[in-house]
Structure formats: C-alpha cells, structure tokens
Computed example of a mutant assay.
Amino acid sequence: MTSTQQMGAREAESHAGKLPESGRFGPLVAGLASLDRPERGFPVRGLEALRQSGLWSAGLTATDGGPDLDGPALLRLMRLVGRASLPLGRLFEGHVNALALISAYGAPAQRARVAAEAGAGRLFGVWNTEGPDGVRLIQGGLRLEGAKTFASGGRHVTRPLLPVDGEGGRQLVLLRADAPESRVREVSGSWQPMGMEGTESVKLDFSGSRLAPDDLIGGAGDYYRQPMFSAGALRFCAVQLGGADRLLTEVRGYLRRLGRHGDEVQALRFAGCWTGLHGAWLALAEGERLERGVLYSGGDEGRLLAQVDAVRLMTEDACLALLEASERAVGARGLLEPEPFGRLIRDLRMYLRQPAPDAARLRLGHWLLGRPPESDWEADDREAEHVREG
C-alpha cells in the first residue's frame, strides 16, 4: 500500500460510523446569517461564528479530533462559508488546509498538540508564496531567515504552516508565531489590493525566529506530495462558488426590488450564468469522488489531477461570466454604496486570481490529447469501481 493509500485508509477508518449530516451546519448558518453583510475589515465576527459552530477543527480527521465530516460535506461547508464572505472563506480554507496537512504528515504528538490548539480557537494558515527573499532554514535547521508574501490573516494567524527551504528540500514548519522565540514583522505597505482587503494578506518577515524540533512537520517534500497538493484546489473553488452564489442572490434581489426580474434580457443572461456555475459544482463533486478513489483504493491519480484542473477552469470561467452579467444588470447605480455589489465583485475578481491558471489549462490539454482515445470509457469504469470498493 502506498503512502497516499495509507493516508486515505486512516481517514476512511476515522469516518467509520460517522454521524448523519442532518442539521450539522445549522448553528453556523444561524451565526453567519446574523452578520447581515460581510464585515468591512478583518472578519472577526465571522471567524467567531465558525469557532462557536463546532466546525473549527474541520481538516483534522475524526481520529485526530476533527468534526465528523466526509469529503462532500467539507466542500459544502466551504461553499457555505464563501457564500457568507469571501475573505472569511479564504481564511477558513487556509485554516482547514493547514490542519489537513498536519493531520496527514504530522507525528502523533504533533497532531495531538495541534488538535488541542485548534480546540482552543487558534487560527492556522498555510503561507507558501514568496519572492526572492523567501524563507529558509539555517543554523542546523532550527532558525528561519526570509519572508512570505500573501500571508492571509497576517498577525491574526498564530499558527502558520510555512513550507520553507531546508537542506533536504522544502520542509513544512509550524511556527508558534506568538511565542517569544518568534520574530514576525509586517512589511509596511505590502497589502493594497483591488479586493479581498479583509484577509489582510500582508508580507511578513520571519528572520530570527527560532524553532523547536517538533515544529518540523513531516519530511522534506511532503508539502508537494500528490494528490493532496493539487486536490486542495477543490476547497478554494468551493469557496469561490459560494461567493458566486452570494453575488447571484444579491443581483436577483436587486432586480426584483426594481421590478426588472421578469425582463427577458436578464433572464437569458442569468440562465447561462446558472448553468455554468452548476456545471462547475458538479465537476467539483466529481473531483471529490475521484480523490476518494485515489486515496482509498489506488485510483488513477492522473485522471484526478486533470479533473482538478478542469474544476479550476470551469469555476473561473463561470464566475467571470457571472461578474460580467452582474455588472451589466445592476449598472452604475448598483455599484454605488451602500449596495453590496462593488465589494462582492472586487472580492470575487481578486480571489479568482489563483496561481497559474494558464498552466492548469495547458496541463489539462496535454493530458487529454496524450491519452489513447479508446481508454476514456474504460478509465471511467475503473474509477467508479475504485470508489465503490472504497
């Protein structure tokens, strides 16, 4: 059994006898609904609603202390949070990503410590993006030198998971950012975005921060191990589709208030938007199904990674079409405060700028054209069998 299958088997075991999902998200829906509209600054109240919902440790397996969510439920949770607020969804997705990586690659004592810290409400995140002054391990691998850019959550994240350069390759480091041994300095003026201001995704310098041996998570290269590295995109696509849900709902309400919801031009415009968004969600659900096949029973990893690229492209295309239609539908008046459209549109446009979309499109095309034409139906049948066996 491969290491990927072992991770999947451990997760499958942790979900054995899982509770029914009915009503699972009820407290969170109520908590987020009380926010009325997305917070203008850092989403303090939204994060607190997540802490109070019992879902704050999503990302950890049930064995490690996480809530009893399967893959489809986790993606629905991401979409729900994105619907409430895209900055909130971006921060929570990063928090969940960090917990999932630690649950997959951390030693038992590390996972227990992280579960306790998540249970106490600490905010985690994964900060990978960097420039030429990127973070590296020095002095025996227990001191940091360098900076990260797009550090979503900034100083609010007290447990950032940092992929950093070490002697053996890229190493995951869980920094106790609020400890006396840590030196975390914000680079002034590093965050002046078009949208997603509330994430406070600043540039942070970690030079001089000291580590303990148990702050090193997993081995060199684990962060880039497939399929976990690429399949994580399914979560941020779910958040983006949640943001699109919110924008479409607000546009519908606006047109109804103006008595324009029966207009034939609007009906034609948004019919196409809905089919695109719905198709992206169905493709995302298929990606999750394929991921289960790979994790639990050795499915086709190449097919899964191609599906993830397809989901990214479909999500981006559908959201861009919705943005264009929404701007045309509400007009200049709708883009003025206090209407929510200006902020919703800016946030979604900014969030869609995930790294290397053209590379994802190119990979997908090469994968498709490089397959023997007669293999498609047989491959789909094999993937279905993998999921049933899992």
Rank of each mutant, 00 (worst) to 15 (best):
K203V: 13
M228W: 15
E291T: 11
L47D: 00
M194E: 14
R225C: 08
W191Q: 03
V308S: 02
L368W: 13
A62Q: 15
V44E: 12
V157P: 04
T2N: 13
G23E: 10
A244D: 09
G272K: 09
E48G: 08
R361P: 07
L369P: 04
R159A: 01
V294L: 05
P87E: 04
F236M: 12
L74W: 09
M196V: 02
A244V: 07
A318M: 01
G262T: 12
H386V: 12
Q6E: 11
E327R: 14
A283V: 05
A30K: 08
E339Q: 10
E48W: 12
E378P: 09
G31K: 04
E13Y: 01
L144A: 00
E197C: 11
R113V: 06
S103E: 01
G198R: 07
L99S: 05
A359Q: 10
A100W: 02
L336K: 13
M196Q: 08
S375W: 12
V81G: 05
R122E: 15
G276D: 04
L137R: 01
R210D: 09
D381V: 15
L241V: 01
R76G: 11
G26D: 15
Q307P: 09
R51K: 14
T275V: 15
Q171L: 02
A325E: 05
P108G: 00
P67R: 10
G146V: 09
A62Y: 10
R363H: 07
G390N: 15
E316G: 08
L352I: 05
E385G: 14
Y224V: 14
Y105G: 01
M350Y: 10
D347M: 06
L322T: 00
R303Y: 11
P357L: 01
A49M: 05
L50D: 03
L137G: 00
N128H: 14
E39G: 03
E324D: 13
D214A: 05
L86M: 14
